[in-house]
């Protein structure tokens, strides 16, 4: 294989030769503008200095303006992160979603994130019916191409590296749940990164629902593997009967802490990335400088965006892997791995 020199010094020099004067001229402009404004402010200060009372008033007004600007940035970020009742397509207008009157005190009106969940479900149905259709007329002589091939790689990854290695024997039974959860979270995460999209997994209700599913799957798998007696025995954790009054509540709490950690992990990761991107962009608006925008905001925002693309896959993988791990631990008997195979045979 021939090595290709990726970094070409001449091309790099050309780019630098174009960029540096541009940046310097922008910088000059900014300095000129700030110089002018400072002149103006000096003049106005001189004019105002005669009246001693109005100077603090002007300062107060300036301070109020500054805090207003910061509040605005925070408001815009929260507006972006939180759930709301309209789908906004910024320059083209917005669609307000219907409000349903609360049933039994629970507000079930349709929000932006609910619409995103529907979109993700529809996308999953479309993608996987297309892929499944391609596999139907596939002979052993030809391999899948394009979308089907890409999905096959992901499905095989979940099957072998997540389900088989964590659950062990009898993993096929739990594979549909794990694959569904993986692709659902992945599509939710990726939809949050395209324009006009929203991250449904950045809503704590969605992640809580997903981990409640994992909780029930885990508990049912544990019941099936151990039976009621074994399940109750597991709750005492092998301690003396006089300590059961302390140990049983702790073990029951332990069953709930795992899904809770899953909830918070996914929610916090998806929300934090979006807040970081928006904050980086707003730095340039708060400081009102082109040089900050070019040198800090845009490059760092692009970097975090690429990181978010990675995190979208990573968090879907982590959620799936931990679900598989909890199922594996629930079905495994106390102690070593040899018992896993036996447990599956029972």
């Amino acid at each position: 294989m021939k090595r290709v020199n990726v970094i070409q010094p001449k091309a790099l020099l050309k780019v630098i030769a174009i960029l540096v004067p541009l940046l310097l001229s922008v910088n000059g402009l900014v300095f000129a503008a700030s110089g002018q404004s400072s002149d103006v402010s000096k003049n106005s200060a001189a004019a105002v200095a005669g009246t001693a009372v109005s100077a603090p008033a002007a300062e107060a007004a300036h301070g109020a303006e500054a805090t207003e600007g910061e509040e605005k940035a925070g408001d815009v970020i929260m507006h972006h992160i939180l759930d709301k009742n309209v789908l906004s397509f910024e320059p083209f207008g917005e669609i307000s979603l219907p409000k349903i009157p609360p049933i039994a005190g629970i507000d079930i009106s349709i929000t932006k994130h609910v619409v995103m969940l529907w979109v993700v479900s529809a996308l999953l149905l479309i993608v996987f019916s297309v892929v499944g259709g391609k596999y139907k007329n596939l002979t052993p002589r030809n391999a899948p191409k394009g979308l089907a091939n890409a999905m096959e790689a992901l499905v095989e990854f979940i099957r072998l590296d997540v389900a088989k290695s964590n659950i062990g024997h009898g993993y096929e039974k739990h594979l549909p749940y794990l694959l569904t959860v993986f692709f659902f979270i992945l599509f939710c995460n990726l939809l949050g990164l395209i324009p006009y999209g929203a991250t449904a997994t950045g809503n704590v209700n969605v992640t809580l629902t997903l981990s409640v599913f994992t909780f029930f799957v885990t508990q049912i798998a544990a019941f099936k593997a151990h039976g009621v007696k074994g399940y109750l025995k597991h709750l005492t954790a092998g301690t003396h009967w006089s300590l059961w009054i302390i140990m049983v509540p702790i073990e029951i709490i332990g069953q709930f802490t795992k899904p809770f950690a899953l909830t918070v992990r996914l929610f916090a990761n998806m929300t934090a990335g979006h807040i970081i991107i928006l904050s980086l962009i707003f730095i340039s608006f708060i400081l009102k400088s082109y040089i900050v925008a070019v040198a800090v905001s845009v490059p760092f925002a692009i970097f975090i965006y690429l990181l978010e693309l990675f995190v979208a896959f990573l968090q879907a993988f982590v959620f799936t892997m931990l679900s598989a791990l909890f199922i594996g631990l629930a079905t495994a008997h106390e102690g070593s791995d040899e018992h896993v195979a036996e447990g599956a045979h029972h």
Binding site: L160, D161, K164, S165, N166, G168, M321, L325, G328, L329, D337
Partner: peptide
């Protein structure tokens, strides 16, 4: 590798 990965994840779990 995947077997090792699974067993190590199980060990830290």
């Amino acid at each position: 590798f995947s077997d090792q990965f699974g067993s190590s994840v199980r060990a830290i779990s």
